[in-house]
Design a protein around this nucleic acid. Structure first.
Lengths: 207, 207
DNA sequence: ACCAGACCTATCCTTTCGTATAGGAGCGGG
DNA sequence: CCCGCTCCTATACGAAAGGATAGGTCTGGT
């Protein structure tokens, strides 16, 4: 069996070492590992012959899925997958939409990892079933709840820590009206108060 | 060489598998691994003969360093170390103060990991020098403004969007006292209200 | 014309937050 | 020993937030 060539990027050296050791011990793959996105791009600049690229979602230079897009445009047609510790399944969907060949939460067992790598290197998309079967966004990111124009404006200011009065002034509204929108926002975002709403929006990367 | 007995707890199966595989492949240790704190406590209930216990900092049941304390009281004298992905070095200090034998950021190389485990199992405290040499909190933010222990506890709860009353209950304090800490926090973080304080802390990656 | 939905405002009321002021307990270093 | 620091508590008051109810306007679609 010819060994697969895997390019791995993760800022945790421990993760790099253990994953690459695992893949190589199985005689499954030859792993090249680096610690940030620029390093990946530099390598792809001269060598695009990898069977698979694994990208840590939280990593210097990644900036969400921006890094994925950069990789894909640096090496069109290459198979790139996202690797992440905390796995909000909305991100998985977005990653696939952005052209990833797979999405690997670090909660995955080592055995599954090997399988996943094999799949993806063969051009087969891989996402853990658990992520796909769970409802789209039950809890953390009710972004499916699309917000109205006003609500978005209010939410943006909420994320700057402004008071109702300040928001009212900026939007030329009455304070009561702002309260109304804040209340609606809290309901839609499943937050118990403005602080949680702001935190949730921030976490979701909305603002 | 008699193999060391290591007890590992991490909710990421991948981390469990890779770390244990690594330690065992080197003939260094026999690893028992579980996925949460209750499981650890249950095991220690009948078997305290481990040379080292590794605890993921972010893990079901851990609740910060509470889990560490539970482990230490469940098996007095046992050597327990904290394992964490994101490593604010303040936590390292707190962990050591709380009685940990070591503190391992996951950014550690596998080789260093082996060494660290060897050290700690021998009763030698281990903390990466990088964490100790770096100034306490040189962070991006006015986190140079050292926060006291209490303030940190309050801030963490602020970042969960809790009300003063709820925070008071969790910390067994009076609501007024919490208000005091919140006010101090706002000053130190240069925030105008609790929401901004929470956002700033979040942004700085503190919680 | 009618209805539905988003949007804005008002009044009223309770709870929470934020701030100020004034202490006291405990601990470490000069 | 006193000083400074952290920590906890108390009382009090105005400001802000949160919730309920009851309207109103304007829009687009049927």
């Amino acid at each position: 069996m010819s060994a697969l060539r895997v390019l791995l990027a993760d800022d945790h050296e421990m993760v790099r070492d253990t994953i690459s050791a695992f893949l190589e011990n199985q005689g499954e793959a030859a792993v090249t590992s680096v610690s940030d996105l620029p390093a990946i791009l530099k390598i792809l600049d001269t060598d695009t012959g990898f069977d698979l690229v694994l990208l840590d979602y939280n990593m210097p230079g990644m900036n969400g899925l921006e890094g994925l897009k950069k990789v894909l445009s640096a090496a069109p047609g290459i198979r790139a997958a996202i690797l992440t510790g905390s796995a909000p399944n909305r991100v998985a969907q977005e990653a696939m939409d952005a052209g990833a060949i797979g999405f690997l939460p670090k909660t995955l067992s080592a055995k599954s990892l090997i399988n996943a790598v094999r799949f993806m290197a063969a051009g087969e998309p891989y996402v853990p079933v658990s992520l796909m079967t769970e409802d789209p966004e039950p809890e953390t990111h009710p972004l499916g709840q699309q917000l109205s124009r006003r609500e978005n404006q209010v939410l943006e200011r909420l994320c700057r820590g402004l008071s109702n009065k300040e928001i009212a002034r900026e939007l030329e509204l009455q304070e009561v009206t702002v309260k109304l929108h804040v209340r609606t926002l809290c309901r839609k975002l499943d937050a118990r108060n403005r602080t949680q709403a702001a935190l949730i929006a921030k976490e979701a990367g909305l603002y």
